[in-house]
Design a protein around this nucleic acid. Structure first.
Lengths: 170, 170
DNA sequence: AAAGATTGACGGTTCAATCTTG
DNA sequence: CAAGATTGAACCGTCAATCTTT
């Protein structure tokens, strides 16, 4: 009845600890940002990208790609930010289908005020908590997982088939 | 103008990689669970806790604590799961304020079907991607960050004050 | 007053459907 | 038909307010 590879004690411990860390760390940093700066994580990310862009403007499609977001998600997010005066939309002259997301002066002010506070939050809760070796290990682990996720879509079907067999045999 | 401790290259790299890893890994595992089993992450967590509990029932308050969720979040989640027949509520005889979350037969079936598939997903995207040393490092890093987050609420005010000074001096 | 729990409103995210332009 | 983008519905999570019982 053990055709399924359950997690052993070490694996389970690592998985649970990771889950807990992610949940607690993300919510803490998000709360800091919201309380201190009145910005959500998505708000912050959009503002960072626009503030670093040429002319403070990026095509919606391009911005969605850079953020690794769906077009729909970005469109909704921009609706909210536009209604608060942080960004605006402008049509693209060279392609009538296209739209630019453009940073407003208010948005620039917000991100300049928020950035140092956000860095402090990240430092306080994560960076300064780890030693140099752990920081390095974290980068290595993250890179490997990301690379695997990026590469595996190619052979996903074969893997699914193999797993279904394993499940059926149980 | 450098009173703010910006991230150096190594720190920035670790931070960005971690962010990307978390976003991609969580969404992938959540998508697997939803597509293969029709359960969201929160659904899964609630079902796991109830299926492991004595009599398949846990007090709302206790369950919220174990999941590290707000009472409100749990209440909303139970509304949704109850409407799908996965769980039910029962009042507590010994304390008229109390409510039990109780696993329904349908919920037990769902979690038994989902668990092995979910383990495979976690294994495929994370556990099997890392070597033993990395797995160990991940657990260590997570434990340290969690411990720091748990302990820091005590002295949060003092730290905030120091940071505000640093920001003001900039 | 404090503990247990719920509610409603709002912002955030996904999915499928849609619309327009290339 | 593809690509760029938006929309609406449904679900998720947080916050503040509320209600009841201890």
């Amino acid at each position: 009845v053990e055709t399924i590879p359950w997690l052993d004690e070490t694996e389970d411990r690592a998985w649970r600890a990771w889950m807990t860390m992610v949940e607690r760390l993300r919510s803490q940093i998000a709360r800091d940002l919201l309380v201190e700066c009145g910005l959500s994580e998505p708000d912050y990310l959009v503002l960072v990208h626009l503030s670093e862009a040429e002319d403070h403007r990026v095509r919606m499609s391009e911005l969605a790609t850079r953020l690794n977001w769906s077009k729909s998600r970005l469109s909704h997010q921009l609706d909210r930010m536009q209604s608060r005066g942080l960004v605006r939309r402008e049509s693209c002259p060279s392609d009538a289908r296209g739209t630019f997301a453009v940073l407003e002066a208010a948005g620039l002010g917000e991100i300049e005020r928020a950035a140092p506070r956000h860095v402090l939050s990240v430092r306080r809760h994560l960076i300064d908590v780890l030693d140099a070796e752990q920081l390095n290990a974290l980068a290595g682990i993250s890179d490997r997982v990301i690379a695997h996720l990026s590469g595996e879509s190619a052979c996903a079907e074969a893997r699914r088939a193999a797993e279904d067999e394993a499940l059926a045999a149980d």
